[in-house]
Design a protein around this nucleic acid. Structure first.
Lengths: 225, 225
DNA sequence: CCATGTGAATGCGTTCACAGCC
DNA sequence: GGCTGTGAACGCATTCACATGG
């Protein structure tokens, strides 16, 4: 079932994001301009979709549009369903410092611009913080709870994903609380690796590593060292 | 010079991070436990270092430690130099909303715990925001400036990297300002791709995509769909 | 035994080149 | 001509298996 290579799935994810903002058809070469990935790679990635679950037309041409490019109306749902994203996910934010609170109100940054919305497929269902004061002071459209209620709230609301924004020293214990509560995936912004049962999917965002990778690509004295 | 495969460099980066916190030697199998990467992969990655610039011992054994594992004192500097990280980098934060301000004071989250420090190799040299009010109100150990001073400050201080935390609508213009000022790398948290000259290295952190990738790995009804 | 170290084989994603369709 | 679509060739990272040293 999961025959699509992971790098291809990541690209399809980005392609989907771009297409969501367009109504007109987008050709593979136009997508190349927008993403930097070669057009044949895009075509190959899209071709994985036809090989999968939805063998509709049976022809060898134009599954997702005519000769002018890919039709967002056709491609976006196909990607969503092939990637298993045609589902509503509930997630929570654990740790409401400056970073964690940035995710409240379904925003990613400190601005109310709609482009920052997380979109319809992920619903922010709760926020948690160890500091009861902060929980009560922070204004938020989503309900906030003290950290000791993680177990109760996560399982009651069926929250499956958590964004972990606590300090490094609390990350492991917070993660274990989430695991015990039945969480299934954690997006970890705390700069420490988490030790969890393998059935729990962890994705790390280590800002220091990101800076270092940038530095690697820049090189000591130019774009290519 | 850059013969080390990129995936290997990323792993070496993480290995370096882990070793920085240890004084005792770490064996490849111990690193496997900590990272999940197989020990032979770690050994292969380390072996790339010997093939590169530093052909020191000439032997076929124990470049970076004895028979008890890798010596952090030896391995960490070797990785740093092989990856071109033995240099001080100045960076700035553009956009001081909740997300951007989380990076002030060299912290990554809203907590003053030292583990969140970005370490010695990256120096936060400035913060910028379009909103002059915010620039004046925010307390910070690093100097803050209104956004129109980006060009002046970046070139004067020799800032080479920027963390971009502005709303999507401002991202492209902010990035162009940075580019004109001579920035060489951008860590982009704004959820839009940036169109910049190819000599400028861009690394995107799209939280929505991270959530989606998590969801992909979790699958519709279990760890593996 | 334990550990690292590394050429050689394997496997997989990318790239190519061309076929099919408008 | 444009485009999508896809099997096949290619190249590179991973993995294996074994050599080397303590």
């Amino acid at each position: 079932m999961s025959l699509i290579p992971e790098p291809a799935r990541v690209r399809l994810l980005h392609i989907m994001r771009i297409m969501e903002k367009f109504a007109q058809p987008l050709s593979s070469s136009r997508i190349e301009e927008l993403t930097g990935w070669p057009s044949h790679t895009i075509r190959k990635d899209v071709s994985y979709l036809s090989g999968e679950g939805e063998g509709e037309t049976g022809g060898t041409h134009g599954h997702f549009g005519g000769n002018c490019g890919y039709e967002p109306r056709l491609l976006v749902p196909a990607i969503r369903s092939a990637l298993g994203l045609d589902k509503e996910w509930k997630f929570c934010v654990v740790g409401l410092g400056r970073l964690g609170s940035a995710f409240l109100n379904e925003e990613i940054s400190g601005s109310p611009e709609p482009e920052f919305s997380l979109g319809g497929e992920f619903e922010l269902a709760a926020g948690f913080d160890k500091n009861v004061n902060r929980v009560e002071i922070l204004k938020s459209a989503v309900p906030l709870y003290p950290a000791y209620k993680i177990g109760e709230v996560v399982s009651r609301f069926g929250i499956e994903i958590a964004i972990l924004c606590v300090p490094a020293g609390e990350a492991q214990t917070s993660a274990e609380k989430l695991a015990a509560a039945g969480i299934r995936g954690i997006l970890n912004f705390a700069p420490v690796p988490l030790r969890l049962p393998p059935e729990i999917v962890v994705r790390n965002v280590f800002v220091l590593d990101e800076l270092r990778e940038l530095a690697i690509h820049i090189g000591p004295s130019g774009p290519r060292a």
